[in-house]
Simulated scan of single mutants.
Amino acid sequence: MSLYDNPQFLEGYRQLRRTGQGINDALEIPAMDAVLAALPIAGARVVDLGCGEGGLAVRLAAAGAAEVLAVDASEQMLAAAVRHPRVRYERADVAAFDLPHGSADLVVSSMALHYVEDFVALVARVAGWLASGGAFVFSVEHPMMTAPVVAADCLVDNYADEGRRERTWFVAGVVKYHRTIGSIVATLRRHGFRLESLDEPLPTSDQVATCPHLAIHRRRPPILLISART
């Protein structure tokens, strides 16, 4: 069963999004949209990995993408996904999902790939899906956040030891995978990608003044956002 099909986890996650207490609306979505605005979206064939309820997929369709294939493993998230005539949803495990060679112009993923164990294999598949000059844009939980073997508020530990981490987030035993920034970038380069941008979205002082819960994210970056081209 997908983590997001666990009723307790799903209710906690949706409550977080409804109340705006997470980092998505304040940090990740604006940063992702800014990177995507520099890309030729109109007429593009797009794949969204770990699409959730389809927010990013629909934004890309609205920006002129010819078609968006939005993929997620969660039955509940897809059941609630926003509908759009140029967005097609498919239930599949991102870790094993595959497409024909050269069938996409843009592959995106928003805060999902830290759940994938074999990042190297995923990058290799994405490189094959993309047409020449295609782009891969993704955000993940920042390695500063995933590094500690024992979750801690602001303590970075065990950074060099990549691999599985277990967290309590709404429920116990949530599995994520830690990778260093250097390892992520090196994997992209080995598979023919050229790094276009690397960002660590952080709240401004004004945002913290308005939303004090964001203050912790000025002490360590919560998100890593990368754009790369074939």
Results as ranks from 00 to 15, higher is better:
residue 69 L to T: 01
residue 69 L to Q: 02
residue 70 A to I: 04
residue 70 A to W: 01
residue 74 S to W: 08
residue 75 E to Y: 11
residue 75 E to R: 15
residue 75 E to D: 13
residue 76 Q to L: 14
residue 76 Q to R: 14
residue 77 M to R: 00
residue 77 M to S: 00
residue 77 M to V: 04
residue 79 A to M: 02
residue 79 A to P: 01
residue 80 A to H: 08
residue 80 A to V: 00
residue 80 A to C: 08
residue 80 A to N: 07
residue 81 A to M: 04
residue 82 V to N: 02
residue 83 R to Y: 02
residue 83 R to V: 10
residue 85 P to M: 07
residue 86 R to L: 06
residue 89 Y to C: 01
residue 90 E to I: 12
residue 90 E to M: 13
residue 90 E to C: 09
residue 91 R to C: 08
residue 93 D to E: 10
residue 94 V to T: 13
residue 94 V to Q: 03
residue 95 A to M: 04
residue 96 A to K: 11
residue 97 F to Y: 14
residue 97 F to C: 07
residue 99 L to A: 01
residue 102 G to K: 04
residue 105 D to G: 10
residue 105 D to T: 07
residue 109 S to G: 06
residue 109 S to V: 06
residue 111 M to L: 15
residue 113 L to F: 04
residue 113 L to P: 04
residue 113 L to Y: 02
residue 114 H to R: 06
residue 114 H to P: 01
residue 115 Y to F: 15
residue 116 V to T: 08
residue 117 E to K: 12
residue 117 E to D: 14
residue 117 E to R: 15
residue 117 E to G: 10
residue 118 D to M: 09
residue 118 D to T: 09
residue 119 F to N: 03
residue 120 V to S: 10
residue 121 A to I: 05
residue 121 A to F: 05
residue 122 L to E: 00
residue 125 R to S: 03
residue 125 R to Y: 00
residue 126 V to A: 02
residue 127 A to E: 03
residue 128 G to C: 06
residue 128 G to S: 06
residue 129 W to V: 00
residue 129 W to Y: 00
residue 129 W to G: 02
residue 129 W to S: 01
residue 132 S to L: 13
residue 134 G to P: 00
residue 135 A to F: 12
residue 135 A to D: 11
residue 136 F to S: 04
residue 136 F to P: 01
residue 137 V to E: 02
residue 139 S to K: 04
residue 140 V to A: 05
residue 140 V to S: 03
residue 141 E to S: 11
residue 145 M to I: 13
residue 147 A to N: 07
residue 149 V to N: 12
residue 149 V to S: 13
residue 150 V to N: 13
residue 151 A to F: 14
residue 152 A to H: 14
residue 155 L to A: 13
residue 156 V to N: 02
residue 156 V to T: 09
residue 156 V to R: 05
residue 156 V to E: 09
residue 156 V to W: 08
residue 156 V to M: 12
residue 157 D to G: 08
residue 158 N to R: 14
residue 158 N to F: 06
residue 158 N to V: 05
residue 165 R to L: 05
residue 167 R to N: 13
residue 167 R to M: 12
residue 167 R to D: 11
residue 169 W to P: 01
residue 169 W to R: 09
residue 169 W to Q: 06
residue 170 F to C: 05
residue 171 V to S: 04
residue 172 A to W: 08
residue 174 V to S: 01
residue 174 V to P: 04
residue 175 V to M: 05
residue 175 V to W: 10
residue 176 K to A: 14
residue 177 Y to D: 06
residue 178 H to N: 05
residue 178 H to I: 08
residue 179 R to P: 04
residue 181 I to E: 13
residue 182 G to F: 09
residue 182 G to N: 10
residue 183 S to E: 08
residue 184 I to Q: 11
residue 185 V to N: 01
residue 186 A to D: 15
residue 186 A to W: 10
residue 187 T to W: 08
residue 188 L to N: 02
residue 191 H to G: 02
residue 193 F to I: 01
residue 194 R to G: 15
residue 194 R to D: 12
residue 195 L to V: 14
residue 195 L to C: 08
residue 195 L to F: 10
residue 197 S to A: 15
residue 197 S to N: 06
residue 197 S to Y: 06
residue 198 L to T: 09
residue 199 D to E: 15
residue 200 E to Y: 07
residue 201 P to S: 05
residue 201 P to L: 02
residue 201 P to T: 04
residue 202 L to D: 07
residue 202 L to N: 11
residue 205 S to I: 11
residue 206 D to M: 12
residue 208 V to M: 06
residue 209 A to N: 10
residue 209 A to E: 13
residue 211 C to V: 13
residue 212 P to V: 07
residue 213 H to Y: 12
residue 214 L to W: 00
residue 215 A to W: 06
residue 215 A to F: 08
